[in-house]
């Protein structure tokens, strides 16, 4: 059942994303095409300059797209008229939320990869080789400096990044679910929930700053200097745990509201 849900979720989201990926690819081709006419004239500089500008804007838009689509899909598929069908499928709430989340993350990652490929396509030439060389150099350098820790750092960083993406998505899911509890304006309530979470986050941050100012950091700093690898691991893993906790909280909110307080119009 989950497999089928996955299939339909991918279909629903990717039917919107495929044109966007095509646009990314098309822009790269266009970029290469413009470069064919490279010359030292005013006209060419204007054209290529504005092309670069539009390319960057479009690239950013494409990266944001899966995020926006995934959140709209969450809302429409669960809480609009479609919800009548979605919630009468023999599928539980966990499966609904998780499948949507995983498909959203996969789509975002695919889009990031597509964006990188697009950039490589458009800049391919000496520059690409130089960038490749620089990355390779950095890699070698880091392996030499960090030794066996390097792959672990990498894995931790990647997990952390994906988790952050997940937390951000789950935050929006939770806001939408909270918005549904409102009797009058559900969109407004969802936006309100978002700012509510933002305010809570700010408040907690401020609290830590205030508390932090009272603490004597010297012994900790000394420890960190003595154990640099452990410090990096600790902060990366700490970040992962924190993100998992916050994500878990948002997940719990959505799950609870959907399974206990569903209120379709």
């Amino acid at each position: 059942m989950v497999k089928k849900l996955f299939k339909h979720e991918i279909h629903a989201l990717w039917r919107l994303m495929i044109p966007i990926w095509c646009v990314l690819f098309g822009m790269s081709i266009l970029g290469r095409f413009i470069q064919l006419f490279e010359q030292e004239t005013m006209a060419y500089n204007i054209i290529s300059g504005s092309a670069v500008f539009f390319y960057v804007v479009a690239l950013l838009a494409c990266i944001v797209c899966p995020f926006v689509f995934a959140i709209t899909r969450f809302h429409r598929n669960l809480f609009s008229g479609e919800g009548y069908l979605t919630f009468t499928l023999p599928i539980n709430t966990n499966q609904h939320i998780l499948v949507k989340l995983v498909v959203a993350l996969i789509t975002e990652l695919v889009t990031l990869v597509a964006a990188v490929v697009s950039v490589i396509l458009v800049t391919f030439g000496e520059l690409t080789v130089e960038i490749g060389k620089a990355i390779w150099y950095l890699f070698k350098l880091s392996v030499r400096e960090w030794g066996a820790h390097m792959p672990f750092y990498l894995v931790e960083a990647v997990i952390g990044a994906i988790l952050l993406l997940a937390v951000e998505t789950l935050l929006f899911y939770a806001c939408i679910c909270i918005g549904q509890q409102s009797k009058k304006n559900r969109t407004l309530a969802a936006v309100g929930a978002y700012f509510g979470f933002y305010a809570i986050q700010q408040a907690i941050g401020t609290m830590f700053l205030l508390v932090g100012a009272e603490i004597d950091w010297k012994p900790l700093a000394a420890w960190a200097v003595e154990h640099p690898f452990a410090t990096v691991h600790l902060s990366l893993c700490g970040g992962i745990v924190l993100a998992a906790l916050v994500g878990g909280l948002f997940y719990y909110i959505s799950h609870r509201l959907i399974s206990r307080r569903l209120n379709l119009e």
């Binding site: 629903a12 429409r76 008229g81 479609e82 009548y84 069908l85 009468t88 023999p90 599928i91």
Partner: peptide, 15 residues
């Protein structure tokens, strides 16, 4: 129970 109940809502729900 959803696997054995067929439900026709009072509004059109098709995507």
């Amino acid at each position: 129970t959803k696997a054995k109940v067929a439900y026709l809502p009072d509004n059109v729900y098709l995507n």
